[in-house]
Nucleic acid binder design. Structure first.
Lengths: 226, 226
DNA sequence: CGCCGGGTGTAACAGGGTTACAGAAGGCTT
DNA sequence: AAGCCTTCTGTAACCCTGTTACACCCGGCG
């Protein structure tokens, strides 16, 4: 179904490509929830059934979008002199790609394509972490730790980005904390002031990822000595 | 609107509490998307408008649910002898609570209540990190790094949990990697085998969080010296 | 007694995904 | 050339969603 292998009969009003492009545009503009088959048809000046003809389904349409977007993740190559900075460069690149397609993670999540999506970066990470001297299960844990950290970070970022009006914002909450002097445990006013400031996501990512990677690639075993 | 302060006239068919409880049940069972006002009304044996009378809105209803659930996050207390293990215990507790309410994060996210939700844990983390010797901006960065890490980890976990059928599972992908010997960079077969195994989330969380916290609380400054 | 107001129900609106069905138009076979 | 077959489009409907205008019931109060 959907196209087959024969040639086009009449000159089509829309093509599968046009539908996919318009859908991409809609998703990028209004999010996944903003993609409706009727809106799509209206934007293309076409009846809804034509959409259904070219891409069979809303699910299938999203599937296709995800497949296309995921291919943008293949070109991740590390850079830097030592393994630590190379792993960090991979993490930074992965975050950048994920941030550039904010709806990608959600889509991939709904479609259950997460493993396939992250295989390329997983492979690159594995190579660098092997080069750093880790092997076997230790290396696998390090790979996954970095992956989870980066993906999770972007997910949190996306969450905070998507809610423009925070009822009691973190800033307000911590400024209230500053007002009431020392009844709770907020003794360090500099800390409270810093927590009242908005998050510098770039810097935070650099710091936390750097700390994680350095600790993971350190020679000492991951068990703590009290 | 919605109740006011007067006494009940006739014996009401449903109460605000009953609506909230039924809604909680529905959300826990079928997720946020599974909560529809009509389903809710049907389950309570009542017309839709009654739902609207007691809780004004779907948004308001979800708001209320979130408020109730968030209060379950207040009781997080650290345990352990040294700051590192105490911070780790906070991280573990936060992850446990979040995992126990899988829909909580999504709800809170949609409602923009994330800062309020995580203020208690933020406060506890700040206290422990201060006790570890960090101050001011450094301490704030550490607090947020741990927070982002834990929340992100749970988000990733939730994502992987919610998709039961992964088209090409990570296991299959890495086993295919094992079959083709050394054309790509997958030299370490033990690593590939480890990556082909399913993720042990508990262990991974312990390892990655431990590494992160230990690196963050280490005396050396977070800037890397190339 | 009549009025007021809390609480409920009926029915409708707009907007979503999806599809049964009819039709148009070119390519192909006979 | 006639006719069928396939591709593609449009109309109209079905069922779902959130939401609301309106009428209604019924206990308390003046």
């Amino acid at each position: 179904m959907t196209q087959g292998t024969a040639k086009a009969a009449r000159t089509p009003a829309v093509s599968r490509r046009a539908v996919l492009d318009a859908a991409t545009r809609l998703v990028e503009a209004q999010g996944v929830a903003g993609l409706s088959m009727r809106k799509l048809a209206a934007e293309l000046g076409v009846a809804v059934t034509s959409i259904y003809w070219h891409v069979g389904n809303r699910e299938a349409l999203l599937d296709e979008l995800v497949q296309e977007m995921v291919h943008g993740l293949d070109a991740l190559s590390p850079s830097g002199p030592d393994p630590t900075t190379r792993v960090l460069s991979l993490a930074v690149g992965l975050r950048r790609v994920l941030r550039d397609h904010p709806h990608l993670i959600g889509l991939v999540n709904e479609r259950g394509l997460t493993p396939a999506m992250f295989l390329p970066s997983e492979r690159a990470l594995a190579a660098e972490i092997t080069a750093a001297g880790l092997t076997g299960a230790r290396a696998a844990e390090a790979v996954r730790a970095v992956q989870y950290h980066v993906i999770g970070f972007v997910l949190v970022e996306r969450h905070t980005d998507r809610s423009p009006e925070q009822r009691p914002s973190a800033e307000e909450l911590w400024q209230a904390e500053l007002a009431a002097p020392p009844p709770a445990g907020a003794a360090d006013s500099a800390l409270a002031r810093a927590l009242a400031a908005p998050v510098d996501a770039d810097r935070l990512f650099e710091i936390s990822t750097g700390a994680l990677v350095r600790a993971l690639l350190a020679p000492s075993p991951p068990a703590r000595e009290t």
